[in-house]
Amino acid sequence: MKSWSEFEGLYGLGNQGRELAGPNLVEAVFGFFANGGTSCHVVGTSGSDIDAYTAALAGLEKVPEVDIVAAPDLWKNESDAPAIARAIAGHCAQAGNRMALLHAKQGASPEDAAKTPGLFGLDETETQFTTVYYPWLNVPGVGGTARTVPPSGHMAGIWARTDAERGVFKAPANQDVRGALSIEKELTDAEQGPLNEAGVNCLRAFPGRGLLVWGARTLSINSDFKYLNVRRLVNFLTESIRTSTTWTSSEVNDDRLWAALRHSVTSFLTDQWKQGALQGRASDEAFYVICDQSNNTAESVKAGKVVVDFGVAPVRPAEFVHLGVTLAGRV
């Protein structure tokens, strides 16, 4: 669906309809569009247990344009939440082109929120494709009844807004949260520190600045994929190159094909570098592309495979800026 009004019309959202759809889902979809989202897929579940979510995720496998998977009712059945989180993270990691956008449970203390990633029990690959946000948001409520809701829908909209305004390579942080009155728990810098270390992204309230997203990390401890925008950029580049080279199917697998692929991928990555997605004063500092006899061996050619290897130097967020001040006094 492309708008909030389309969602309302599809679900017939009078007061009763809102309750049947589930307040967290309704508020998440509203928050998504309120924060800049433009298109979403809503997949219903037959329940709040792991089997229901597994079936829903199977449906999403057939929707290639999905790049964010959120679960507003993740904690509805607390005992199943870790298994559901693992299923979503595993789905995203296997797809290789989408991210799990999860959240800590309602009312969690900063100490408990920092333990949330450990509860999920993800492997290293799954952590690269998973984010966690905290705390929940206080919103006016779609039907006029104020509620406290998970941040996942609003965050999905902020990701989409940042993509549209700056590009997928820009970290979706230091962004205002629209459609919310306040946050459930106002954090101090001291409380945020351990949350950062655990990979939990915080929402903060600052005087005169309103509600802001104050973090853009995955749950990974791998320095290459610790930052959300780096993981999403690699997802985007890989998927774009894969889909734009389907024309190679049934082409003669020889030097001419390899040269054409090198040119195509190099042109695409050069455009990304010019847009600011990659580091480097020159393009050869920003990326490399290999598609020749060195990675297309006789064995791989006989097997009908053509291999393109590329590496990139993605831009990373200035998460901490150190400022030094020297004061000169009179002698």
Score class of each variant (00 low, 15 high):
residue 4 W to V: 03
residue 11 Y to I: 08
residue 14 G to F: 11
residue 15 N to V: 10
residue 21 A to P: 02
residue 21 A to W: 07
residue 22 G to K: 13
residue 23 P to H: 13
residue 23 P to D: 14
residue 27 E to T: 05
residue 27 E to I: 11
residue 31 G to Q: 07
residue 33 F to K: 07
residue 40 C to Y: 05
residue 45 T to Q: 14
residue 56 A to Y: 10
residue 61 E to T: 09
residue 62 K to D: 15
residue 65 E to Q: 08
residue 70 A to L: 15
residue 75 W to S: 12
residue 79 S to E: 15
residue 85 A to I: 03
residue 85 A to H: 14
residue 90 G to W: 11
residue 97 N to C: 06
residue 104 A to D: 10
residue 106 Q to C: 02
residue 108 A to T: 09
residue 110 P to S: 11
residue 112 D to E: 15
residue 114 A to H: 12
residue 117 P to K: 13
residue 118 G to W: 14
residue 119 L to N: 12
residue 120 F to M: 15
residue 120 F to L: 15
residue 123 D to M: 02
residue 125 T to F: 04
residue 127 T to I: 13
residue 132 V to E: 09
residue 136 W to R: 14
residue 137 L to R: 11
residue 137 L to W: 15
residue 141 G to F: 10
residue 146 A to E: 09
residue 147 R to I: 07
residue 152 S to W: 01
residue 157 G to D: 01
residue 164 A to V: 00
residue 166 R to F: 00
residue 173 A to P: 04
residue 174 N to L: 05
residue 178 R to Y: 01
residue 179 G to W: 00
residue 184 E to A: 15
residue 185 K to N: 15
residue 187 L to Q: 12
residue 187 L to H: 12
residue 191 E to K: 08
residue 194 P to R: 05
residue 197 E to L: 10
residue 206 F to K: 09
residue 208 G to I: 01
residue 208 G to N: 00
residue 210 G to Q: 01
residue 213 V to I: 13
residue 215 G to Q: 13
residue 217 R to I: 00
residue 220 S to T: 08
residue 224 D to L: 06
residue 226 K to Q: 12
residue 226 K to E: 14
residue 227 Y to P: 01
residue 236 F to T: 08
residue 248 T to Y: 03
residue 250 S to C: 02
residue 250 S to K: 02
residue 252 V to K: 09
residue 261 L to Q: 05
residue 268 F to R: 00
residue 273 W to E: 04
residue 277 A to M: 04
residue 277 A to S: 03
residue 280 G to C: 10
residue 283 S to E: 07
residue 284 D to Y: 08
residue 288 Y to A: 07
residue 288 Y to I: 02
residue 290 I to P: 02
residue 291 C to K: 00
residue 295 N to A: 00
residue 302 K to C: 06
residue 309 D to E: 07
residue 309 D to M: 05
residue 312 V to Y: 01
residue 313 A to R: 06
residue 314 P to Q: 04
residue 316 R to F: 11
residue 317 P to C: 09
residue 317 P to D: 12
residue 320 F to H: 10
residue 329 G to L: 08
residue 331 V to M: 05
residue 331 V to P: 09
